[in-house]
Each structure stands twice: as C-alpha cells, then as structure tokens.
C-alpha cells in the first residue's frame, strides 16, 4: 500500500483473494458432490432433460439432478425450473 493507492477507490470492490475463496468453495463443493455420485448420474440427467424437452424448452441450468445419501437409502432429487 503506498500513498498512490489512497487515490484509487478500493472500497467498493472486494479483494480478489476473497473472490477467489468464494468461487473455490462453490466449485470444489460441486465437484466433490459429482465425484461421489454414481457413474450413471450424468446419463440419467441427460435422459431426464430429453424427456422434459419434448414438452417444454428448458436449458441445462434449469435442471438439477442430485443424489443424496440418507443412511441406508439414497434420494434422487430432481429440480426443474419451468419458464413461465
């Protein structure tokens, strides 16, 4: 930090290290979830997508397919955001 930095407006933009941490938290959590998921999940997701698209036009970001372990069973969670 030097005297010249005082004239720059740093207050509004968050520090880049903070941005890095937040981005990493999201992507690492997402990738860990994916690698613990069964191998068929991406194919299942594509098939569900194809079925929905027969009726409604949605993009990949509007469909979320997750498998969550709950003790001795798993829950398949499908979230679809349909456009209005």
């Amino acid at each position: 930090m030097s005297i010249f930095d005082l004239f720059r407006d740093n207050s509004k933009t968050p520090k880049s290290a903070h941005v890095a941490k937040e981005r990493l938290k999201v992507i690492v959590a997402h990738e860990r979830h994916q690698r613990n998921a069964p191998d068929y999940l991406p194919a299942l997701q594509r098939d569900i997508m194809d079925v929905i698209r027969k009726y409604v036009d949605i993009g990949p970001e509007q469909l979320q397919v997750d498998i969550n372990e709950e003790g001795n069973y798993s829950i398949l969670e499908v979230n679809v955001n349909l456009p209005k």
Binding site: M1, K15, S16, A17, H18, A20, K21, K25, V28
Partner: peptide, 17 residues
Amino acid sequence: RVARGDMLDVPDIEEIL
C-alpha cells in the same frame, strides 16, 4: 500479497481442502 488481499491466505486453503 496476502496482506494486500490479493492472494488466498493459509486458513482459506485449509478450509477448502
């Protein structure tokens, strides 16, 4: 660079990994 907020700090990396 960590002090300036331009680099991830040790606890950040520990927390993520």
